[in-house]
Design a protein around this nucleic acid. Structure first.
Lengths: 214, 214
DNA sequence: TATTGGTGGATACACCGTACGGTAGCGCGG
DNA sequence: CCGCGCTACCGTACGGTGTATCCACCAATA
């Protein structure tokens, strides 16, 4: 079993899931596979091509969602699947929007969303479709990125109030006590702990309604 | 003139503007300033703290926009200023949404947008505000990131049709000729060349309308 | 004058991506 | 059967990175 792009991508994804993109290196992947670092370059041109490979593997999982005949349901399903995938593979959100995603599976989900959106009555010509796709994808990558970084900082500081106050507290509370940021302070202090998925869902339908002229 | 956080940040920004984030290194900044690399650590804890510093300098320029009494105009102005800044400093878009932006100027523009949004009649309680901010910021970082990467690939391949066909063509056209991505193909082939700023503006108002219940 | 404290510099370490030269096996023409 | 070229594997080496640590100097003080 001589090695293959698939195996390399799988090992890379394992490592990235465990230690993040910063903890991912050609050498570590090679060690994980029990070969010399240079072997990978027989299957992959670059480190960045390897990242593209990993990204497309994730897109493959996203593309597995069912296609409903209702265009709106299809779009919602794809968006939620993308969010789910990003939460399972946080490094995915780091790559989201950083480069054009042109792998076959990425194109497949692009095709699916574009086709679904174009079935909306308010999307008439190609220009409408371009704009709608742009707004939707923009929101998608932004919202996902946001949620992932929030989750990361929450994890690094610890969820409990005490640890949070101890880590970001000294600086942030001092900042907020200056009184220059009253609204932000209000948000931080008595901001409700709203459910992330529910928020995502809510904002997604809002944007989708706006885009398709609801 | 012994060196300072401001000078370091300015030099770093110059280098990042010229050669991107990948072309930015502690050693190069030090060389630009005519000092040894280790000197920078007397003023900055980390490379990542230095990035935070750079980001906040950009936020300072964004925060300079006038505050209108009309809340909607304020939000629009901030959004456009952010986009403008990201186009002037493309590396900024790489850092957008990647970590919490807690610098004083970042907090200032956060405060301004939050305050403006909370003056919308449809934003009643803190929960509404959180959701609205989330959707707006999400769209903002996603759309900006998208536009910057588009501009980068356009620049790297060359704007003219021939170079584009030559670089991405072989792979992409082969992909599209499989017939598996008809909608994407239509988008690529006879997709109008719409003005980027106009598209941004359009989608921004769309999202803003949705968020504030227009 | 002797000591101390702080400031700038150089060196060193661990790690990174990857260019490059070499070598062993294997199929094929003579 | 022999030799040749080609392909697939391998290790080493180079130039770069962030940063910890030690060291020399120089000013001010006791």
């Amino acid at each position: 079993m001589p090695l293959s792009r698939e195996k390399i991508a799988a090992a890379a994804i394992r490592l990235a899931d465990a230690h993040g993109l910063d903890g991912l290196s050609i050498r570590k992947i090679a060690k994980e596979l029990g070969v010399g670092p240079m072997r990978l370059y027989d299957y992959v041109l670059n480190r960045s091509e390897l990242l593209d490979l990993m990204v497309d593997v994730v897109y493959a999982r996203i593309a597995e969602v069912d296609q409903h005949q209702e265009w709106r349901a299809t779009v919602l399903a794809i968006a939620h699947a993308t969010r789910r995938a990003a939460l399972d593979h946080e490094w995915f959100s780091d790559l989201l929007g950083a480069r054009p995603h042109l792998g076959p599976h990425a194109l497949a989900v692009g095709e699916a969303t574009a086709a679904a959106l174009s079935r909306s009555p308010r999307v008439r010509d190609v220009g409408d479709l371009q704009r709608a796709l742009g707004a939707l994808n923009g929101f998608l990558v932004g919202a996902i990125r946001r949620e992932v970084t929030e989750r990361r900082t929450a994890r690094s500081t610890g969820t409990d109030e005490a640890a949070w106050q101890a880590s970001l507290g000294p600086y942030l509370t001092r900042m907020l006590e200056t009184g220059r940021y009253p609204t932000v302070a209000r948000l931080v202090i008595d901001g409700a702990h709203l459910d992330a998925e529910e928020t995502f869902s809510h904002n997604l339908t809002t944007v989708l309604d706006g885009v398709t002229g609801g």
